[in-house]
């Protein structure tokens, strides 16, 4: 699959990554070569094959509805780059 500059910008925006002009060409080339590498998958006839999302089949792993929280708020906020009044702080979000 041919990868264009717009393709890379589109996914970069989805992934919230910024691409600088000086790295753009190499990045497009790298991604294209990886995607091309993956294009070999289309050779395989998988018409009647179900995808496997988990290598190990497991089902119904469920927890009981019992409160087990024992963390301290200050501890949980201790790694926050910016905080205020017991909250995580971000630039003003306009809804």
């Amino acid at each position: 699959m041919k990868i264009t500059s717009q393709d890379v910008e589109y996914v970069a925006n989805l992934a919230r990554l910024k691409i600088h002009d000086d790295e753009k060409d190499k990045l497009i080339a790298d991604i294209e070569s990886i995607i091309e590498f993956a294009d070999v998958l289309s050779e395989v006839d998988t018409e009647n094959i179900e995808p496997t999302y988990h290598a190990i089949k497991a089902q119904n792993v469920l927890r009981e509805d019992i409160v087990t929280n024992n963390y301290d708020r200050d501890e949980l906020l201790s790694n926050a780059p910016s905080k205020q009044d017991g909250c995580f702080e971000v630039p003003k979000v306009v809804e």
Partner: peptide, 26 residues
């Protein structure tokens, strides 16, 4: 429910911010 969907934090309404949190739901 008494607890959240994927962790053991309580679901109670109206407390101080971020009191019903744990590493999982954060």
């Amino acid at each position: 429910t008494a607890t959240k969907m994927y962790c053991g934090c309580p679901t109670s309404f109206g407390s101080e911010p971020n009191m019903h949190c744990c590493p999982i739901c954060l």
